[in-house]
Design a protein around this nucleic acid. Structure first.
Lengths: 102, 102
DNA sequence: ACTTATAATATCACATAACGATATCGTTAA
DNA sequence: TTAACGATATCGTTATGTGATATTATAAGT
């Protein structure tokens, strides 16, 4: 655990993934860059298995696209993924009202 | 994973734990009740090892107290725990501005 | 055409964590 | 003294996290 607060924030990463998968779709490297912008350092050895599991769990669907000759795998949220996101939202609200506002 | 969004929310539970450990201290059963109020079902087999790990990681300190004859172990946040919490707060803010507000 | 560089994704091996079921341990009530 | 109970601990299995490394495919250089 490199960063002091890493163990608390792994779920946050997945939620960001779900959100972006719902909003616009992304491939692995896109997501790593996006997460880096938010201050999360996540390596391919963590991200890719996570994407695979989220897909197996039915939260994400993937599609292979050729782009500049490269094959890239794009992920989108499934209905189940969107449902999960909608259930997570109020929990974020609770966390805020407790941890941020008090 | 019983609940659809459980895997995303485990970190939330730890953050609630950290928050309450900072604010008022608690013992295991208190925490289970508190989390239940927030809609998280967490069993002793998950909570206690988590508390132990958080203590080993230096986030929590514990103190045994006798209460109605029962020995109960109370947990408080350490300086490191409070530091972690202060680093987590802005991440919650980011999550909100992205997932809740957009 | 062949080699090299590069970019995206996948896998391996090990360590750590989640969690239901069950056990332990100490105290009070009968 | 022992039965019941409440709080915490442990076990065993399965799942997850992670760095390091491999694979795959195209593009660029010679």
């Amino acid at each position: 655990m490199v960063d002091i607060s890493r163990e608390f924030l792994l779920g946050f990463i997945k939620i960001h993934v779900l959100y972006h998968a719902d909003k616009e779709g992304f491939c692995g490297v896109d997501m790593m860059k996006e997460l880096k912008k938010h201050g999360y350092r996540i390596g391919p050895g963590t991200l890719y298995p996570t994407l695979h599991r989220m897909q197996e769990g039915g939260y994400l669907a993937s599609e292979k696209r050729k782009e500049n000759g490269r094959i890239r795998i794009y992920y989108r949220a499934t209905p189940k993924g969107r449902l999960a996101l909608s259930r997570i939202r109020p929990k974020i609200g609770e966390l805020v009202s407790e941890v941020l506002e008090h």
